[in-house]
């Protein structure tokens, strides 16, 4: 063994061998809403390696606060499937009514589940999954987000063009206000609530205390979902009808760049290499977008891919 090998190579090999997932390649979980399955995608090879069967119609996915489980909402199946976030192995299936969009409050205390088809917003105890409160709403609760202090949940009401706020301390409705045509995605950003209005070409900016609209940011026809980049500097908006993905400065909300992503761009997750993984609902594909060049690669998945979640630390599947 040469000194060079002993000094330079051996420590590297030992370090990588001892570090968990040192040679990790990453796994993407993609929910195929109309194939009733979850695609397990090798992030490095950028190809689907296998599928986990769901019951009927999985739409959205979220990681549990303890990081041990992925929760996959199966709307028509009336269940939440719990899966291992590294291997994708199914841990259990819990009966839950119409789980469409779901998210944990920032303090990890509550799991809020929107029943889009059932006009209900359910608040569960995150630890036990016992239902704390059911809010009946009018109508079609689509997406949700929270205030950073976890005291308020904001829910878009797709068919009635409104945004609703729920007090999670008192477990009471706070307000319901008109927000724009067919609201879908919603996000808390810099003390404001932003809502993507799918029946229009803009994102509405609202006051979280009152729900009153403060501004409208034009992003493209069919503004649908909003995602904040991990560095919190860029807000990404997918426009369903325009077939575009738009980056905005998260502070000024000025458009930085427009990317053509045909095939119904929907959910986004962010990879450590800077790429965006975007589900394309009508194309059976995920677009892996390099925001620097604007080019995107595609990964073949199942029918109507919707929710997506990346685990870059997982070993190659």
């Amino acid at each position: 063994m040469t000194p060079w090998f002993r000094l330079r190579v051996l420590p590297f090999l030992l370090a990588t061998a001892l570090t968990p997932h040192a040679w990790a390649d990453g796994v993407a979980f993609v929910l195929n809403s109309k194939s009733a399955s979850v695609s397990i995608v090798d992030m490095t090879a950028r190809r689907e390696v296998r599928r986990i069967p769901a019951l009927r119609e999985p739409h959205h996915i979220v990681l549990s606060p303890d990081g041990k489980s992925l929760l996959i909402g199966d709307t028509a199946g009336n269940q939440i499937m719990f899966a291992d976030p590294v291997t994708g192995a199914v841990q259990r299936r819990a009966p839950v009514s119409d789980p469409y969009h779901l998210a944990f409050s920032p303090n990890g205390k509550y799991l809020v589940v929107n029943g889009l088809a059932r006009n209900q917003v359910d608040v569960y105890d995150a630890a036990t999954l016992a239902m704390i409160k059911r809010f009946h709403v009018d109508s079609t609760p689509s997406h949700l987000d929270f205030s950073p202090d976890s005291k308020t949940a904001f829910v878009t009401l797709q068919d009635t063009d409104k945004l609703a706020a729920f007090d999670l301390t008192a477990m009471t409705p706070k307000w319901v206000e008109p927000i724009g045509p067919t609201p879908a995605g919603v996000i808390w950003l810099n003390g404001k609530i932003l809502v993507a209005n799918m029946g229009s070409d803009h994102v509405a900016v609202a006051d979280p205390a009152t729900g009153k609209i403060l501004d409208r940011i034009v992003t493209g026809k069919g503004a649908h979902t909003l995602f904040l980049a991990p560095d919190k500097k860029i807000l990404w908006v997918n426009n369903r009808a325009a077939g575009t993905t738009v980056s905005l400065d998260a502070q000024t909300l000025k458009i930085i760049r427009v990317y053509n992503i045909p095939g119904g761009p929907d959910d986004i997750d962010f990879a450590p290499d800077g790429t965006l993984w975007i589900t394309r609902r009508f194309a059976e594909k995920v677009a892996v977008l390099d925001p620097g060049t604007g080019a995107f690669e595609t990964v073949q998945v199942g029918r109507s891919p919707h929710g997506i979640w990346l685990n870059p630390k997982a070993p190659a599947p």
């Binding site: 077939g243 045909p262 095939g263 119904g264 609902r281 009508f282 194309a283 059976e284």
Partner: peptide, 8 residues
């Protein structure tokens, strides 16, 4: 895919 194209 054809249905998706018609839809879009």
């Amino acid at each position: 895919l054809l249905a998706g194209w018609v839809h879009e």
